[in-house]
Amino acid sequence: MNRERKSLLYYCNHVSLVVLSLLCLIPVLIVIAASLSTENRLVSEGFALWPRGLTLEAYTFAFQQADTMLRAYGVTVFITLFGTFTSLLISSLFAYAISRRDFAYRNSFSFIIFFTMLFNGGLVPTYIVMTNVLHLKDTLWALIVPLLVSAWNILIMRTFFSQNPQAIIEAAKIEGAGEYRLFFQIIIPMSTPVLATIGIITVLGYWNDWFNALLYIDNRSLLPLQYLVYNMVANAQMMKELSNSAGASLVTAIPTKSLQMAVVMIVITPMTVIYLYFKRYFVRGLTIGALKG
């Protein structure tokens, strides 16, 4: 009887998860359908799970300046890859140091990194430091440095590193391994779940960032993808409003609603592929610190 109850509960859980997964897919399907719909039918008939008048007008409008779009893609890919790699390197080194019980200044550095989670200088001091002290305005470093170190990520890594078996570290030291060799050849291979988890979070942070470009970038050749598509959608909306107020026929030629959905698809597709590839590490990383029976 207990076996039958467990089997019934097992199938009910799976059915519930399948239904929940399908419900989560509905917004994605609506976005895809809207990006392939004509503007007039989308405005008059609303959103649906299937395209209303199949067309690639929105994607054609988005890629009218293909060279600018590709350049923005290149900028975003570079700052995402380089920023994520550098952030993981700095954060993991810091976290490993404060996870070692034999590190003399462990508590002091832990307090420093925790203090930054409670208090920060604010936007104006940060802007002054970035522009007047570091002179990073209109450089790619202005898009990388602000997101380079996260106190929360360091604390998560420290929790993971502290769970590594001390016997392995002691054995490596007995065999003559130095600190750097111990870290890069033993600790890092053992820490792929937390590195992948923090890596995905950092990648999303760099990929979705547009605010730093708004603050520090005036050179259009250095604009990242997010800020470029934000300007594109804003300009299209403004043009449509101006043409509408003037009674011009241009209003029907600017696919603002479908353009927004097409831009969403252009932006999220690479991140979706990356997440699907690293999701197994992400799930394992989320269990850090969980109770085990």
Results as ranks from 00 to 15, higher is better:
Leu70His: 01
Tyr277Gln: 04
Tyr96Ala: 10
Ser92Glu: 08
Gly83Val: 03
Thr60Ala: 14
Pro27Ala: 02
Glu179Tyr: 07
Ile268Ala: 06
Asn153Lys: 02
Gly199Ser: 12
Arg101Gln: 14
Ala58Tyr: 12
Glu179His: 12
Gln163Gly: 03
Gln226Lys: 07
Ser7Thr: 14
Ile186Pro: 12
Leu118Cys: 04
Leu36Thr: 09
Glu175Thr: 08
Ala236Val: 04
Asn107Leu: 03
Gly122Tyr: 12
Thr159Lys: 10
Glu39Gly: 07
Leu250Glu: 12
Ala177Thr: 09
Ala262Asp: 07
Val18Met: 14
Trp141Val: 06
Met157Thr: 00
Ser16Asn: 05
Thr68Ile: 13
Leu9Asn: 11
Val283Asn: 00
Asn219Pro: 11
Ala177Gly: 05
Leu8Met: 14
Ile174Val: 10
Ser108Pro: 06
Ile217Leu: 08
Ala253Gln: 13
Val267His: 00
Ala72Phe: 01
Leu291Ile: 13
Ala72Ile: 04
Ala62Tyr: 12
Ile217Val: 11
Ser91Cys: 15
Ala62Val: 13
Leu225Ser: 09
Arg158Ser: 03
Tyr216His: 06
Arg100Asp: 04
Trp50Leu: 12
Leu147Lys: 10
Gln163Asp: 10
Ala48Glu: 00
Ala262Phe: 01
Leu182Cys: 10
His135Cys: 03
Gly199Asp: 11
Ser35Gln: 14
Glu175Gln: 08
Ala33Trp: 05
Ile26Gln: 11
Leu140Lys: 12
Gly285Ile: 05
Asp67Trp: 06
Ala290Cys: 03
Ala236Trp: 10
Ala234Asn: 11
Gly46Ile: 13
Trp207Glu: 04
Ala58Arg: 05
Thr86Asn: 00
Leu88His: 06
Ser16Met: 11
Ser191Ile: 09
Ile154Ala: 06
Leu148Thr: 01
Arg284Gly: 10
Arg181Leu: 05
Cys24Ser: 09
Lys279Met: 13
Tyr96Ser: 11
Ile113Ala: 02
Phe85Thr: 09
Lys6Trp: 09
Tyr127Asp: 05
Leu195Ile: 08
Ser35Ala: 15
Val28Glu: 03
Thr55Trp: 06
Ala72Leu: 02
Phe109Ser: 01
Gly199Gln: 09
Ile200Ala: 13
Val75Phe: 07
Gly121Gln: 07
Thr131Met: 08
Met1Trp: 09
Ile217Phe: 07
Asn2Gly: 14
Leu23Asp: 00
Thr139His: 02
Asn132Thr: 09
Ile169Gly: 08
Ala62Cys: 13
Val43Tyr: 09
Asn153Met: 04
Asn153Phe: 13
Ala167Ile: 07
Val15Thr: 13
Thr139Asn: 05
Gly205Phe: 01
Met265Leu: 15
Leu54Ala: 13
Ser221Thr: 13
Asn231Leu: 11
Val283Leu: 04
Leu17Val: 15
Asn235His: 06
Arg158His: 07
Glu45Trp: 10
Tyr281Ser: 02
Val233Ser: 10
Ala142Ser: 15
Thr80Arg: 00
Phe78Tyr: 15
Leu204Lys: 06
Leu250Ala: 14
Val18Thr: 14
Leu93Glu: 10
Met1Ile: 08
Met239Ile: 04
Gln166Trp: 04
Ile112Ala: 07
Lys137Gln: 15
Ala48Trp: 00
Leu140Asn: 06
Ile113His: 01
Met261Tyr: 14
Glu57Thr: 10
Tyr127Val: 11
Ser243Asn: 12
Trp152Lys: 06
Leu25Pro: 14
Cys24Val: 06
Tyr216Gly: 02
Tyr105Gln: 10
